[in-house]
Computed example of a mutant assay.
Amino acid sequence: MTTTAPGTPPAGRAAAPAAARRPAALRTRKLIPWAFLAPFLGLFVLCFVLPILYAVHQSFLQVRRHGLFGEEGRETVFVGFDNYARALGQDTFIDSIVRVLLFGVVQVPVMLGFALVLALLLESASALWPGFFRALYFMPYGVPGVVASLLWGYLYTPGLSPIIDVAGLVGLEPDLLGPDTVLWSIANIITWLFIGYNMLILIAQLKTIPAELYESARIDGAGPLQIAWRVQIPLIRPALVLTSIFSIIGTLQLFAEPQIISKFTVAIDSAYTPNMAAYTSAFTGNDYNVAAAQSVIVALTAFVLSFGFLWLVDRKDRRR
């Protein structure tokens, strides 16, 4: 027979409050990660989501002024997709989209190809001073795009460029700022800036490959080229996809480099790229609603191309 001391609650009553406290503790623990994420989520919504929603909202509106100079007032009206029709009806805007797509088709594979080769060379067993060369190749990324464009602009200008002077010694007269070549001169600037950045992403992925895989490949008689093709490149496929997506989006965002190079040549007009066309519509034509529509079109194009690329990659993986 058991006895209970006076004033001591039965065991069942003591367990009940403890069991009631457990769900509250679990709920508190689940809220802790959201508390850490709250500052980021707040800034993300404020600086990213809300501006996008505002741009989409503005793309469906139009400001109509009454009177010869708008002295009789103005009103904002809903016009549906009229701004999109006006944007797509501008030949210069369509030409700018085609231009950057051509730019990306050529420049992105070249840039990522160089970045991949550099990453593989620096992570090879026979690489000398890999830390020094990683920093050296990454250094151009530390130069702001505006400064890099100014530097290259002078290197492209006849009479100032040592490149053109040296080419003249062997009988060549390159026109690096001409209508047919200025796009590829800009591509050279972008490639020079971002090879090191993409190289570091690929190197970070290469460092996750276990050393045992390399040893097994060498035991099987694989040489450096076979190891790179059959071991390293397949295993860094996620990093290659990531850098490709970043490069596709960056291509459609091209703005600062052609804007600066336009000061050195007449071959670049105010709507040379989609972002330049939207900027011109907003701050030269004072048509902010059409500029918003152009911005939304550029964003949708980047979305379609990025997810189209991911779909193709996933489709190939499923076939394998």
Score class of each variant (00 low, 15 high):
I186G: 12
R27S: 05
F60Q: 03
T284W: 13
A291E: 00
E75C: 04
F255M: 03
Q107W: 00
S216Y: 00
L68T: 04
T265K: 13
P140S: 06
W34T: 08
L46C: 11
L31K: 06
T3K: 12
P109T: 00
L26S: 05
F48N: 02
I236Y: 12
T181M: 11
G113N: 09
Y156P: 04
F307G: 01
M111T: 06
P10L: 05
P6C: 11
V98Y: 09
L41A: 00
I245W: 07
V298R: 13
L252N: 08
I261P: 12
E257K: 11
T265I: 10
T301G: 15
A302N: 00
N275C: 01
W184V: 06
A302F: 00
A127Q: 04
R318N: 10
A15G: 13
F103R: 01
D165H: 14
E123T: 08
G308T: 09
Q62P: 02
C47L: 14
T28K: 02
F78V: 00
A15I: 12
A15H: 01
I163G: 14
M199I: 04
R230T: 13
S126K: 10
E173Q: 11
A19G: 08
I32L: 15
G131H: 01
F114Q: 03
T280D: 13
R22L: 01
L176V: 11
L240H: 05
L43T: 06
R74I: 01
I233R: 15
L102Q: 12
I189L: 15
T8N: 13
F309I: 06
L26K: 08
A167C: 13
D317K: 12
Q58P: 03
G80L: 11
V110M: 03
G145R: 15
W229R: 00
M139K: 07
P39S: 02
P179D: 13
